[in-house]
Design a protein around this nucleic acid. Structure first.
Lengths: 366, 366
DNA sequence: CTGAAAGCGCTTACAG
DNA sequence: CTGAAAGCGCTTACAG
């Protein structure tokens, strides 16, 4: 059995062993107040002899501070969120905090439950990538924020939630990506994926409706990317063709189905993929048809990955400083916890476009 | 500002509001003991009215149980560990636990610090992929385990640490992978990566020495993979050629350098890649030289990824149920926490070989 | 500088 | 069933 003595010595025991009062022992072990050099030595010796380690739980109980922050992300299995978490975790660790993670799977109900769990555990603050679109209710989150739990949003923002946020400049990034394709001579440019159409809505939606969805209903990062895409097209005098904007299920399979549909019709000559999974879905369909990137279809994707440099062709991608995103969010949070004041701010991080081989001129006769 | 009333109501306040004793209120809110239907109603009403939520911290303080488990992994940015964490997190959440994660970056010092942090926060148990090789000191971990903190090892095991473990059957998997190559007619088969040679040792090591490193010093999963590779070769009457076993820095760049070296000499016709990063390094070098997989070099890799199906050629890989690995580890831990008794067990999970296009017969004239 | 007391918000025996 | 008391292991005022 791996028992072996469950008890850990307490301050009282150390004090007794050292022959000093409890408060004195607490002062040296807790690192506050002042004590004579002599008693400090005695206490330290006794602590070492007994193998004393402070009980953070008890400490938190009396200080009201846990030095733990909660993190709610869609799915850490997604490389994007894994990197965000890494950034958060590194930054908070450096500041002396522990990190409690929960996956929300983009499910508002799970998210609410996660937030309640974290608040119940008395985390000092929460970093969250809110699920469910800009106008999501996110009751637990709003409740927590209003009760004084510090929260910072990462990657996405909610309407009417006045707390700090750190996001990528998604609109800008998508505009650049689209422009790269425009500059190469394309005008029929697809987007995988765009704003999701609420189930039940007919599949057909106007460009105007897409813009509305993007601006109000969609997860803000996805919405911003659509907006950037549309802006780039319009600036080049190209109309947004709703057929070329994916509005179905936001998964690799969804992207693949979208690609199949669009390739069967008046096909695009290029595509912007806003997520790794979108890229994978698009490529799967393109390859299944024996088509070639970039000869038949040019492609720009988001979220650079080590694989992008090893695929053939190598992929032109929007590289986002994802880990930095997490670090900044955590930094914002710890600053607030340190008492930093001031109105909520939203920090935008710029991305860079990495040119590789997946963009070429459109096929001659189209 | 997002303050707004930092105070949350306590049991005492609810009791007062309900006009009952503190203990009664505690009984209904804590869900223990027995109370009359009447007082239960009153308490519940008051709790709702005041917006009472139990303070888990205080509860933990008196029960000695935090319902939180600690997880120490090398790097969650690695898809393998991300999936492990996901599995752990799902399983523990279902069992009502929170998950505190820390990255160790394969650094024993960071790992020790992480374990201490977790023990300080009084986690109920720890799931860890120990860094530093089978014989690692892992002082904090051994200390924790000996003090009654439940620990289970995942993906790797330490010598002389008598606690549960859940691992992949790495030796078996590597044997299969190597055999696939042997069956295709290869006999010069490289391994990226194999056991790391401690810095300072000359680059040249014998096959015997490699086996010793694999069995005793190397991280157990990596060691097992080397052992499986060697067994398959020997079973086919092929000698292990130490030149074909990567012993340098275990990174994508290290794998690339190894590939370059080996391709400059008496080149192998096939390679087994035991990690995603190894695969990426090998492919990078192969492509830089304009060589073709599988015409010039056959390849089997570990850790299936969505990308593997989209690369050309698609990659023959060993698919491991990584998320399951995490789930099982967490299940083991929660079972122990529930009081399950018995000697420490190590659970082996089988992997399956997914045949795709990256294996062919060796080039005719070699 | 130092010690005894009270308090953090729960749960756990202990009487009624 | 119900309430008052003690205790979990710290920190925080309060006297000396």
């Amino acid at each position: 059995m791996n028992q072996g003595g469950d008890r850990r010595p307490t301050i009282s025991e150390v004090a007794q062993h050292a022959g000093v009062g409890r408060s004195s022992a607490a002062r040296v072990l807790g690192g506050y107040g002042s004590v004579s050099e002599r008693t400090r030595k005695q206490v330290l010796n006794s602590a070492a002899a007994l193998g004393y380690e402070t009980n953070e739980l008890a400490r938190s109980m009396s200080t009201g501070v846990t030095r733990t922050i909660g993190v709610v992300l869609a799915d850490i299995t997604n490389p994007f969120f894994a990197a965000v978490l890494r950034g958060i975790s590194d930054a908070t660790r450096a500041a002396g905090y522990g990190t409690l993670v929960v996956n929300s799977d983009e499910d508002p109900a799970l998210e609410d439950e996660a937030v309640r769990l974290l608040v119940g555990k008395r985390v000092d603050g929460i970093v969250i990538a809110p699920a469910g679109g800009r106008r999501a209710a996110a009751e637990a989150l709003r409740w927590a924020a209003s009760r004084g739990v510090r929260v910072v949003q990462v990657d996405r923002t909610l309407d009417d939630l006045a707390v700090d946020a750190v996001v990528m400049d998604n609109r800008d990034a998508a505009r650049e990506a689209t422009r790269r394709l425009l500059d190469a001579g394309h005008s029929r440019i697809a987007l995988a994926w765009g704003p999701a159409v609420p189930p039940g809505t007919g599949a057909r939606v106007s460009a105007r409706r897409l813009t509305e969805l993007a601006a109000r209903v969609e997860i803000s990062s996805v919405g911003e990317r659509y907006l950037g895409y549309a802006e780039a097209l319009r600036a080049a005098g190209v109309e947004v063709d709703p057929h070329l904007v994916m509005t179905g299920r936001q998964t690799a399979d969804g992207a693949r189905a979208f690609t199949a549909g669009v390739l069967d019709g008046h096909a695009p000559t290029a595509v912007v993929c806003t997520e790794v999974e979108a890229t994978i879905g698009v490529l799967a369909e393109v390859r299944a048809r024996g088509l070639s990137v970039p000869d038949d279809l040019s492609l720009v994707s988001f979220d650079d990955s080590p694989w992008a440099g090893v695929l053939r062709p190598t992929l032109t991608t929007v590289r986002q400083p994802v880990q930095l995103l997490g670090e900044q969010a955590a930094a914002r949070l710890t600053a607030r916890l340190r008492g930093e004041d001031g109105p909520p701010a939203v920090v935008h991080l710029a991305s860079i476009l990495v040119d590789r081989e997946s963009v070429a001129a459109p096929p001659a006769a189209s």
